[in-house]
Simulated assay, not measured.
Amino acid sequence: MAAALIIGSTVCDVMIYLDRLPNREGDAHIDHQQWSVGGCAFNVVNILHFLSQPYQFISPIGSGIYGDFIRRELKQLGIPSSISLDGANGCCYCFVESDGERTFLSDHGVEYSFQAEWLQEIAREKFDYIYLCGLEVEESTGLELVQSVSRIEGKVIFAPGPRGRLIPKDRLEAIYDLHPILHVNEVEALEFSGCKEIHQAVEGLYQRTGQLVIVTLGEKGAIAYDGNWYKAAGIPTKVIDTVGAGDSHVGAFIAARLEGLDIAKALSFANKVSSRIVASKGVHLTKEQQEALRTELKQK
Rank of each mutant, 00 (worst) to 15 (best):
G109V: 04
C91F: 15
K75C: 13
P54A: 14
D68R: 13
D128S: 15
L85C: 11
E117I: 06
D68A: 13
L77A: 10
V156M: 07
L51D: 04
E97V: 09
L119E: 14
R171P: 04
H108C: 04
F127A: 11
E138A: 09
F114T: 00
I152V: 14
P162Y: 11
S52E: 13
L166G: 00
E117L: 08
C133I: 02
R171V: 09
G154T: 04
S140K: 02
S98L: 09
F69G: 09
V149Y: 04
R124K: 15
S150P: 04
G90C: 12
Y129I: 06
C91L: 12
C94S: 07
L172Q: 06
S81V: 09
S52L: 07
L85Q: 14
G87T: 03
Q56H: 14
E125Y: 03
R102G: 05
G142F: 01
S59M: 05
P54D: 10
L105V: 13
I130H: 06
E97A: 07
V156Q: 14
K75D: 14
F114Q: 01
S63I: 00
F104W: 08
A123F: 08
F57T: 07
A116I: 03
P80H: 14
S81N: 07
E138I: 01
T103Q: 08
F114K: 00
Q115W: 01
D68W: 06
G142E: 01
Q120C: 04
F127R: 08
G62H: 01
G164R: 06
P80A: 14
G78R: 06
I47E: 03
S84M: 15
S148E: 06
G67K: 04
L145Y: 00
A88N: 10
D107K: 12
S113I: 00
K169Q: 10
S106R: 06
L85A: 08
E97Y: 10
I58R: 08
G90Y: 11
P168W: 03
S140F: 00
G134L: 14
S98N: 13
V96N: 06
L172H: 08
V110G: 03
D86I: 02
L48S: 03
Q147S: 11
Q120T: 08
V45Q: 02
L132E: 02
F69M: 05
L145K: 00
A123C: 06
S59N: 09
G67A: 08
Y66K: 06
P162K: 12
Q76H: 12
E153Y: 07
Q120H: 15
Q56Y: 12
S113Y: 00
I65V: 13
R72G: 12
P60D: 11
G154M: 09
Y112V: 10
E139Y: 00
I47L: 05
G109R: 02
P54Y: 13
E139S: 07
W118V: 07
G78H: 03
G87W: 01
F114N: 01
R72K: 15
E136A: 05
V146A: 01
G154Y: 05
T103I: 11
I83N: 07
